[in-house]
Design a protein around this nucleic acid. Structure first.
Lengths: 240, 240
DNA sequence: AGCCGTCTTTGCGCTGGCACAAAGACAGAT
DNA sequence: ATCTGTCTTTGTGCCAGCGCAAAGACGGCT
């Protein structure tokens, strides 16, 4: 597994698009990339597990990753999805604690890996890296804050709508029927993201399907009328 | 207001204790400090308001700051408290958006201020600054994640207990009666932090007071039996 | 002292959405 | 084809906690 990594030019381009490497000179980027290791994870495998010691820093090149957290009582909560170009495990690696959650590959994934201490050195040497990491964090933090407030003040239907819209933005794929959420997504997953139960999600989706807002299938949702869904998510629903 | 700042040695010590300035050489620290401006805010004043353009970076030297967010519907949520030594407004300043929330001085406060662009330059020059900022963010992020999960999965009583314990850790002051939450703290404040209503908070505190867990007053809470409160927050309550 | 505004408590009715149960649907394995 | 496990739907009961209302308590101000 710990094979040396050959960086082909196309891959460098890919790296340059990652938020972590914004505004990094190509020569530096090459140097940084060469200190990394590449790894593949097959669908369903874990990149790391909750409460593992956080000593690596990942950048996702291909595939999608789902972050889940298990509560002491055994409830699972889905905290985040990562799409290519994003940094995984930054938080724990920076704070140098154990991973507070697990990272699961929901597709076949390709990641670049840096040792924690090494990444620290790199950041000391190339401040831009540290600034970019902080910026990515800042954005995710704001996102989390919004979700928190949402959970505290909005009712379930609206939260589910927002969750769907957020997912659509992240992994939505337009086709003739509408926007397909392009990943296996069970009712339970949705429930855990929106902070409710799978029962309520199921009922809500059924209702929406009757109204033509969405089409649902096994582990699949297609948003047929994004506009109406936004209405549910934002405004007072237009009565009726 | 924009008067040049004289850094007296004792203040430098204070700065060195801030998370942002961990592991920064004293000479650099002095240089960095000299680029800042100091400002005072009287109790009740705002350091910045939600949706102001984020162009400054604050470090809190004295006093406490409360971060609140107003939802479109007008509900207020309290997101965070800052105590001396912490950086305020980092997130927005890094992400370069508008402040997503308001920062209110709940005591008389003394802060150091850097212009956003200036702080960026400093971070480029002294990577440790950027790393520290990222680390602080990472810690706060984790905290927020925990609160999110808590809100999604725990019942109200437990959330209130945790909120109190968190506050106790931040601004708790031991005295003969127990741990005093050393800041004006209304039922409504608590409710907004725990994600519930002031009614429920009031009832819950009354119950606890009957059991001798806490003593409450107008805008004041004293935790008499921290141990029992932890029990409420963590375990299944010991029946009865 | 008296007034006023805010904070707090408590009662009461109501409902959103949770919990459990049971049945159907679909996918993958053998 | 059949079995098995997971995913989904839907019905039903029920209660935690919200929302309103009304009254008391406290602090600050003039």
């Amino acid at each position: 597994m710990n094979t040396a990594t050959i960086i082909v030019p196309s891959r460098l381009d890919l790296l340059a698009q990652c938020s972590l490497f914004h505004n990094i000179a190509p020569t530096i980027l090459t140097a940084v990339a060469q200190t990394s290791i590449q790894r593949r994870y097959a669908r369903g495998n874990y990149i790391f597990h909750q409460s593992d010691r956080a000593n690596a820093y990942y950048v996702l090149l291909e595939g999608n990753v789902r972050m889940t957290q298990l509560t002491p009582e055994g409830d699972q909560v889905i905290v985040h999805f990562f799409t290519p170009g994003q940094g995984v495990g930054i938080i724990a690696a920076l704070g140098s604690f154990n991973y507070p959650l697990s990272a699961e590959a929901i597709d076949d994934c390709l990641v670049m890996v840096w040792n924690r201490a090494l990444m620290m050195q790199l950041m000391e040497k190339y401040p831009r890296l540290a600034i970019n990491a902080a910026t990515m964090l800042a954005i995710r933090f704001k996102d989390m804050q919004d979700r928190f407030r949402e959970l505290a003040t909005e009712r379930v239907e609206r939260r589910i709508a927002r969750t769907l819209l957020r997912l659509a933005k992240q992994v939505g794929e337009k086709n003739k029927e509408g926007i397909l959420i392009n990943m296996p997504l069970s009712r339970r997953d949705l429930a855990e993201m929106a902070g409710t139960t799978l029962y309520t999600v199921s009922r809500t989706l059924s209702q929406w399907e009757k109204k033509g807002l969405v089409k649902t299938g096994r582990e699949q949702v297609i948003i047929c009328s994004p506009h109406d869904l936004v209405t549910v998510a934002e405004d007072l629903p237009p009565s009726k």
